[in-house]
Structure formats: C-alpha cells, structure tokens
C-alpha cells in the first residue's frame, strides 16, 4: 500500500492528480534560469537561521558577537556541545523526549485506529452525530484546556511525571479522522470474505485491515511524534524538574539559566533540531499527505 493509493482514496483533490505541465512549457525560457537562481537565493536566506544556529554553536562565547556576520570564528569550539551536554542532564532530557514522543505516537495511533474502525465499519446508534462532535474538536485550541488539565494532573499526583506529558494529548480527532477517511475508500469485500471464512472482528482488524492501513497509520504516527517532540506550553506547565523535561523545555530552562551563553545554547538547539530534520528528510511524503489532511491543525 503506497501513499499514492492513500491519497487517491482519502484526498482526491489534493496531490493525487498530479498533472504534467503541457509539453510547450517544458522548453526552458531565459526566465527559468533567473527563476532558478532566485529560488536558490531565497532558499539560502530562508535556511539561514539554521546555518547560523550551527555556526554559533561552534564559536567561542567571546566571539559570538565580535565575528559580526561571519560564519567562522578564530577557532572551532566543539566544547560548546560538551558544555550543553553537562549543564542540563541533556542525555536524560533527550531520552525523555524520545520516550514521550514514541509512547505518545504509539498510544495515539492505536487509539485512533480502533476509533476509526468503529466509525468507518460498524453500525451503531448516533454514529455519525458522535463522529461530528468528535471531529469538531479539531478546531478547539488545546490552550483552552491546560488549566483544568493541570488541576487534574495535580490531583492525580502526576505533576512532574512523563505520563502527564503523554496521556492527555493522545485523544485528538485528527488520527481517527484520517484513518477513517482512508478506511471508507477501501472496499469492504476483503472483510466480508474474511467474515464468511469465519474470522472474528479482532482477527479481521489484525490480519485484514492492519496491512491495508499502514500508510495512514504511518502519517498519524509521524504527526503525533512531531507534535509531542515540539510541544512546549504543556511541558512548561506540568514539568518543573529538569530531569523530567523534554527537549524544548530543557532548552528553555537552559536559556533561562544562561541566557547569554549563546555557544552552548545553540549547540543544544542544534541537537534539538537534528531529529526533526531527519524526520523531514526521510518521511517527506507522509508529511505532505498529512498536511493536506489537516495535520498540525493551525500551527
């Protein structure tokens, strides 16, 4: 199952119908070259903050500003990475981030699949009404919920714990919606055949549906991973012990402690950016599909 098939089923009007430009336009006009030079320049300017982040992470702190707009300082200061690594329990913070993001993505994906299957394939009363109410929360800002959620976590004695970072945000409608849309585009005949062969509902979900929905599951997993990985407001509220912090919170705590120590700070920022960069490079197709389906709603 490829993402193309998925796009055809789920979003017929976005991306799937990739039309070739007419042959006439394939001929290169002089404008094309100007356009290409311009886009390279625009891309460089756009990417500059990341280049500057890495450049600064390799500068001695005394030269961060004295080097002006030069990329290189008098020497390459690798020790910034060591400083960042030891100033906050950085290995712990990175491990927390991976743990929270992977557990959160797994929980979100499983829960979404189960709900999506029920909404797409089972008959029960008020199904479509319930789904619409659920779906309406796609446009509900999570920021509205943080005060009661904090009080809840406080009552449950979960403040400063990783479950508090994982569980409350695994039940959004995006994943279930995306998988449901995809399921609706699949023929029910496979399932009917399996049912006639005597397979139970769990067996059908596991052996028939699961292999077919890998593509949308991957999209949901990638998007929730990134959401957990980048989340800041909620960790800022519910975690105040750096040993339980995720990378964005750790960075923010680090900058609060040594706000002008830019070398180590940018070293830490570089480390925080690299996993996301890898995700973009390796999983760009899933990302593009997911965005077209409303992933990252409103970011």
């Amino acid at each position: 199952m490829t993402t193309e098939t998925m796009a055809k089923g789920a979003t017929p009007n976005t991306g799937a119908l990739k039309h070739q430009p007419p042959a006439r336009r394939r001929k290169k006009r002089p404008g094309t070259y100007i356009s290409r030079v311009a886009i390279i320049l625009a891309g460089l300017v756009f990417f500059f903050p990341f280049l500057w982040m890495v450049a600064t992470s390799l500068k001695p702190t005394s030269e961060v500003f004295s080097t002006g707009s030069n990329f290189l300082a008098s020497r390459v200061e690798w020790s910034n990475y060591v400083t960042a690594w030891t100033a906050i329990p950085f290995a712990q913070v990175i491990a927390n981030s991976f743990l929270v993001s992977i557990a959160g993505a797994a929980l979100t994906t499983v829960v979404s699949l189960l709900s999506a299957y029920a909404f797409a394939r089972l008959q029960f009363r008020h199904r479509d009404k319930l789904f619409l109410v659920f779906l309406g929360t796609l446009v509900l800002p999570q920021e509205v919920l943080v005060i009661p959620l904090y009080i809840m976590m406080n009552k449950l004695d979960l403040v400063n714990s990783l479950p508090a970072l994982i569980v409350p945000f695994a039940f959004g409608a995006f994943g279930a919606f995306l998988i449901r849309q995809f399921l609706l585009s699949l023929p029910v005949e496979f399932e009917e055949a399996a049912r006639i062969d005597g397979a139970g509902s769990i067996r059908i979900l596991w052996s028939v549906i699961l292999p077919l929905v890998r593509a949308p599951l991957a999209v949901v997993a990638v998007f929730s991973f990134i959401d957990y990985w980048s989340s800041f407001l909620w960790p800022l509220i519910v975690i105040n012990d750096v040993s339980q912090a995720t990378i964005p919170l750790g960075l923010s705590m680090f900058s609060g402690e040594r706000g002008t120590d830019w070398g180590p700070l940018m070293a830490a920022a570089t480390v925080a950016v690299i996993p996301s960069l890898l995700v973009v490079i390796l999983l760009q197709r899933q990302l593009v599909k997911g965005v077209s389906m409303g992933g990252f709603g409103g970011r």
């Binding site: 891309g43 756009f46 903050p49 990341f50 500057w52 964005p248 940018m266 960069l277």
Partner: peptide, 20 residues
C-alpha cells in the same frame, strides 16, 4: 520541503536562534 522544515523543528529552538 525546504520551506516546510521550520514547521517541524521545535519552536523553542527556532525562537532562540531568532532571538540571537
């Protein structure tokens, strides 16, 4: 995809380099 990168990288890291 290049223009999409900052959407995915953590906002905190993005904001800090802009502050710098």
């Amino acid at each position: 995809v290049l223009f999409f990168v900052p959407v995915v990288t953590p906002m905190v890291a993005n904001a800090l380099v802009w502050r710098l």
